[in-house]
């Protein structure tokens, strides 16, 4: 069993364990298209992508990058404790990119008897270009 994460052990300013993904391959775009049902050819067909203005061809699904963030978050905070998770898509991701997901605890407080941690999450590529910024909240068990 994975190690339990208790409210008392998480402090404001703590970093979430960093997750590195990639380098991204076009094959992963195809897998994600099939899994998610997003068949916009912008993600899988270089000719189409160039025709709509992407000079280097296809870009990754934004939701794939959000999926990476979900992997990082629920690798740290079990899915069953996650209450809220949201992102803003701020940059396009090209094949070959390596994506790093980092997160930080911004606040913690007891609300309606629940021990809530409030965290931010950011995905960046190897050039420090931000791909998504987001936030998540989780209700953690107490040692008491």
């Amino acid at each position: 069993m994975a190690q339990e994460l208790f409210y008392e052990d998480v402090n404001v300013g703590d970093d979430m364990p960093e997750l590195t993904k990639g380098p991204l391959q076009k094959l992963q775009h195809v897998m994600y298209a099939g899994a998610s049902g997003d068949f916009n050819p912008l993600h899988t067909d270089d000719d189409f992508a160039r025709a709509v203005g992407m000079k280097d061809g296809v870009i990754a699904h934004g939701m794939l990058i959000m999926g990476f963030a979900g992997q990082a978050i629920t690798g740290w905070v079990p899915k069953k404790y996650l209450k809220k998770f949201g992102v803003r898509f701020s940059g396009m991701t090209k094949p070959g990119s390596t994506i790093s997901i980092t997160g930080k605890v911004m606040d913690k407080r007891v609300e309606n008897g629940e021990n809530i941690i409030f965290c931010e999450v950011v995905a960046r590529d190897e050039n420090e270009d931000v791909k998504i910024t987001g936030h998540f909240e989780a209700s953690l068990p107490s040692r008491d």
């Binding site: 069993m1 994975a2 899994a35 998610s36 049902g37 997003d38 939701m63 959000m66 999926g67 979900g70 992997q71 978050i73 629920t74 079990p78 899915k79 069953k80 996650l82 998770f85």
Partner: peptide, 22 residues
């Protein structure tokens, strides 16, 4: 089940699947 779930839960971004496949 060993982690306290009833079965394998859907991952955090799963709801994109019904939205797009439907």
């Amino acid at each position: 089940i060993a982690e306290g779930y009833k079965d394998s839960p859907a991952p955090p971004t799963f709801l994109t699947v019904p939205m797009l496949w439907s």
